[in-house]
Nucleic acid binder design. Structure first.
Lengths: 146, 146
DNA sequence: CATTATTGGTTATTTGATATAACTATTTTC
DNA sequence: GAAAATAGTTATATCAAATAACCAATAATG
């Protein structure tokens, strides 16, 4: 049924896109069961690793535009997962931290995500999986977020 | 300036997304100079490799929904790159082929895309680049387009 | 130190990609 | 020959991401 992809099936860009969609379909479904998007999950993770950081820093780190970050972080706050407290140093700024609930919740998300990652590694085999990570990291670092 | 990504920076899904965005930013800019999207380019490529195939087949092959395929293929037709001729076998169906202009144009796009791919390979080095392709292909084939 | 430029956060709005529902004409299946 | 499936289409909804403009506070500068 499927046609020949032609030159496309050796094309890094195309393969990256398809691989990303396949992996996200898998992980995304698990996150969706907890009413979370991949972006939501990434934000919680970064806040957990950098407690007290501000919205701009978190957004820039993840390549999210700060203007699009606002509704996302407000959702997390409304769900009681994130605390937005006025910064002591800079009166313009806001310190982001996870609540206790946020930390607990994130732990279960990490466990779930790890299960999905394990499935990917099992599918590829450990060697190919390891061989995949290094080049991906190199490419990922090319991104120059605004 | 950038914060710690925490567990994220070893996460396949996250790395795939960032790597894909980085590569697409590069290739996408080149395509955009010709008023083409990555999807446009993919469609022309598949039609070139499968002359006479119908919209549904091409769309399914690329994981594009057939309903979203319509405006795309109409743009290509309007630009004189693609020919939509009524199918002989099935009166519901349409045969897609590239025009001569379409073939010429696609050749220049291929050349440009190859230059971008070369830059990616140079950035990673040949060994890592090769090591990247195989697992990506395996993952990409997981996609089960409607 | 007074003015200017920059930064952190925000709102409102637009664009673009993708998904859903519904319909017609034809072909296939039973 | 009736019912089900398929090819193509239209119209519409949804959702992520980009753009423009703004305020308050801080940093830079002359």
């Amino acid at each position: 049924m499927a046609l020949d992809l032609g030159p496309l099936d050796g094309h890094v860009g195309y393969l990256l896109r398809r691989a990303q969609l396949a992996v996200f379909a898998d992980i995304g479904a698990g996150l969706a069961a907890h009413a979370m998007s991949p972006a939501d999950y990434a934000v919680l993770t970064v806040i957990d690793s950098n407690p007290g950081a501000g919205p701009s820093q978190v957004a820039e780190t993840l390549g999210i535009q700060k203007t699009n970050f606002v509704p996302l972080i407000r959702r997390m706050e409304a769900r009681g997962l994130v605390l937005r407290t006025p910064s002591a140093r800079d009166r313009r700024s806001v310190d982001l931290t996870l609540t206790e609930d946020g930390k607990t919740f994130l732990a279960t998300l990490h466990a779930m995500a790890q299960a999905h990652v394990d499935r990917v590694r099992d599918h590829l085999g450990p060697a190919e999986y390891e061989a995949l990570l290094a080049p991906l990291q190199r490419l990922a670092r090319l991104t120059r977020p605004a």
